[in-house]
Write a protein that binds this DNA or RNA. Structure first.
Lengths: 205, 205, 205, 205
DNA sequence: CCGTAACCGAGACGGTACGTCGAGTCTTTGA
DNA sequence: TCAAAGACTCGACGTACCGTCTCGGTTACGG
């Protein structure tokens, strides 16, 4: 008896290379044109794919861009720099570097804006981007607890709330600095910000 | 003595009521349709005005929405609740309340997204919205210094940097909480957030 | 008090030159591409006009082609060659010459085919093309009656029926010869046909 | 001697039932949708067949519809009503009845229209439909000659020309009456038409 | 009785045109 | 000069079919 995969049975299978080509083309178009001038027809052409192929796989511009941008954040990792403060600084700098790239800037805020009126889209953003990078916060806390910099957290509910708060503060501040204030989140700024964050967490514990 | 503004010389003068009607119509359309489905033709119709009139006063959708949203934030004020922490809590709650309104949510993020590729637009946002509310931070610090909660700031450069940082952290965290995480910035969250912020500022001073 | 023409009051008036340009472009496209490969986008481009302008004036391909083809038949006239038989021969030859032109061939049958499922279209064809050329039959009969070749028609009902019959026979035979049999309706054929027609009318009177 | 059918050699043979199912489905679709809205995908679905199968047997929409319509005319036959005039009336009425059916109307004119730009298609129409029904004219003449209603035709060239002319007149008139004038070719009309035709032929002989 | 070759269904593919919609401009009449 | 009205150009939208292709699977026949 063989394992029956009832999916993907009849008909010509989808070209698996097309997905990657389309997402790459999307990022390239975001760099050159920005969100508002990006057209799906153009993306299809760049990817060497028909418009219909694109629409067969994504519901629209929003969903496509979420996926294209989400891949950018997968390269984030938590460097082990020896102390909690330095670890945070490191990852915040990485985050800032990604946000400084035009394909991230241009796309991310736009889909967030769209998500204010589209719950499915917000959920997609949360699961594809936010939730996926939450691992960094958890990993950082675990490492700090192992080092003895943070006490073990007895109440898991409270722990989750703290993780959420940290995420909102970190991501929010970097995004606001970069996109609204329009200034670079450079080393100096990150150091000041990290000092405030660490101090706040310590004193509020 | 009458001031002769050479701009307004001959011909039929612009209807001054139209501006307000257009901005109100824009906000109403933002509520009902959201940014991406808002059309200038529709706004003109709602305002009882021809499209031409609208284009004579604003360069396009982006500029119009910035102005429409900017007015929303003018109602912010710093309540005197007796202590720095309570003052901050109060203003952050007000800010969160405005951001929870659909016309703010929908419009603000969209124009920020557009601004990533349009310097003039970013400048317009900064001057119409951000800069204008920076007064709250300054006011708060002054009041806290008068109360003795904060020491006087000797270095004005350093002071400005701190104000910027606070603004990025506050605005960024609330925006991220509301729009990305999709959870309400309610009293409980604001209290936690404020505790971290105050603690961080105190310890990093 | 002046006569108020409530039509054409406010707003920019339609460019009257565009109609002619579009119809001419349509005929040109019919010649080069034929009905089935003619696209409204292409016609618009040829006419130097936006697609929307075209759709503002015609409901679709069918209506447009009817109007474009109808103009071709307006050049038909009844020559006075001295006898009924010669008059008929002359006009049938003209009709055959028009039908031999590719823009007529290609378009006319196609819209007739469409009209089998669209009563409004059939009516448009009837009033724009058929009814308009019915004048030739009436004119020919009147002239023949003046010459004494035909007796005056006492019953108008019967007269109308005869006119319809003649029209169906003449138009039908020429169209079938040209488009279905695929042979030219040349002088020889027209002479044979006319002889049969005249003979038939005389004997059935 | 063995029958060498080099065509059908190896491999799975074509399902012979599919052809009939496809042609029937085509006629059904013509009735419901008309030529222009008939799609090959839909026909395939109706016939319970894959699009590939259809394309393996017909080159395209035009060829398919010609074959589907051609079958309709095979039911025509020349009734023996005793006189030439009555025989013609009978067959013309049958022809009119077929043309009144929507699947004939809708399809026939459309492929004729297409054929104006496609010689291969015109030839297919001629051989599948026109030529095939020419037999009726020949048969009718032969019968009339046997009855003594028509003299024997000495010149075969002239005879062929006459047959062609009759066919163009009969088919053309009925088609024009039905499809362009949009009126029924009923008994009364057919009687008038036949009288003219017979009279014309007699007088021109 | 086994391979080969053509068939079959399903459905993805690259294209092309569709008809609509919105942006932003222009041209009219009228205030 | 501004205002209302509405036609204008332009370009993207998302959909629908076309005709082709690529699958896995199914018949027949011929060795």
């Amino acid at each position: 008896m063989q394992s029956r995969t009832p999916a993907s049975r009849a008909g010509r299978p989808r070209d698996p290379a097309a997905d990657a080509a389309i997402l790459a083309a999307t990022r390239q178009a975001l760099v050159e044109l920005g969100w508002s001038k990006l057209t799906l027809g153009d993306v299809a052409t760049r990817a060497g794919v028909a418009k219909t192929t694109l629409y067969r796989r994504w519901a629209g511009k929003n969903e496509l861009v979420v996926d294209a941008v989400a891949e950018l954040f997968d390269e984030l990792e938590l460097p082990d720099r020896g102390s909690l403060a330095d670890d945070i600084e490191g990852v915040v700098l990485q985050f800032a570097a990604i946000l400084a790239r035009p394909e991230a800037k241009s796309g991310l805020m736009a889909v967030v804006a769209e998500a204010t009126r589209d719950d499915a889209l917000r959920e997609r953003i949360r699961s594809s981007i936010v939730e996926r990078q939450m691992r960094l916060v958890l990993q950082g806390r675990a490492r700090a607890q192992k080092r003895g910099e943070l006490p073990p957290e007895p109440d898991p509910r409270e722990a989750a709330r703290t993780v959420d708060l940290i995420f909102d503060v970190v991501a929010g501040a970097v995004v606001h600095r970069t996109l609204v204030s329009g200034k670079a989140a450079d080393e100096e700024w990150v150091r000041s910000f990290t000092r405030v964050l660490i101090g706040g967490l310590a004193s509020s514990a």
